[in-house]
């Protein structure tokens, strides 16, 4: 039994007009269960590429990635879907909520794909919205919510299936400093309760919340501070 997340020589290469772009060029690292990690680095250094690997949204060109004892590089599409559904919660910079869909139904979406019955699903989604302080906004559509509220709905959605790992790619990138604080308070609380948290950020204040900072440069890990 190794660490919760084990990356071994992860590479991701894009072919662009006959040229190879190395978004990730050999990343090897372990992340323990319960860790609070900030992934930082210059724009284009490969942070999002790395996060997308962890969330099984993208496949490595080569290398190994084992998360929660599941070797992601050798799984079928259906197994990866189950992994994204059960093990991972993903929070995006642009929230990615379904328009014209209530907060409750947005949060219930992952539960729909885990086959939960309607009644249970609504109860669980409502509970998650209450955890992020939006118990009174359940019937609102995304367009009727502020940016901070939308991001909290997205966090509630990421939490719906009780994942072991929460991945957030610049979750506060579209928020002002006040709402950033609200969102970070929620992340801190979640990590205290035991969830493994990995956040990509450009902001040092946000990075300071984490107990470990991994700095990327040109597809490499430049620095790993604990």
């Amino acid at each position: 039994m190794g660490a919760l997340i084990q990356a071994r020589d992860l590479r991701r290469t894009y072919r662009m007009g006959g040229m190879d772009v190395h978004a990730l060029s050999g990343v090897t690292l372990d992340i323990e269960a319960g860790a609070y990690v900030a992934v930082m680095g210059a724009s284009g250094s490969g942070k999002s590429t790395f996060m997308n690997m962890l969330g099984a949204l993208d496949q490595p060109s080569s290398g190994q990635l084992i998360i929660n004892d599941i070797a992601l590089h050798e799984r079928s599409a259906d197994e990866l879907a189950a992994f994204r559904n059960q093990t991972i919660g993903f929070v995006f910079q642009q929230f990615n909520l379904l328009a014209r869909t209530t907060a409750l139904d947005n949060v219930g979406l992952p539960l729909l794909y885990s086959g939960m019955a309607t009644k249970e699903r609504h109860a669980r989604a409502a509970h998650c919205l209450e955890m992020v302080g939006l118990g009174d906004r359940m019937d609102h559509h995304p367009s009727q919510l502020s940016g901070g509220q939308q991001q909290r709905v997205a966090i509630a959605r990421a939490l719906a299936n009780n994942p072991r790992i929460l991945l957030a790619d610049e979750p506060t990138g579209a928020l002002d400093s006040r709402t950033t604080q609200d969102v970070m308070a929620i992340f801190d609380q979640l990590n205290r309760e035991g969830i493994t948290l990995i956040i990509v950020t450009h902001e040092d204040e946000v990075g300071a919340h984490a107990r470990r900072q991994i700095i990327f440069r040109d597809g490499h890990v430049l620095e790993d501070r604990r």
Partner: peptide, 16 residues
């Protein structure tokens, strides 16, 4: 397409 991407990201299988 983005909606489909999101559904896949939260665990929809191709057949879903």
């Amino acid at each position: 397409t983005r909606e489909i991407g999101l559904r896949l990201a939260v665990g929809a299988r191709p057949r879903d």
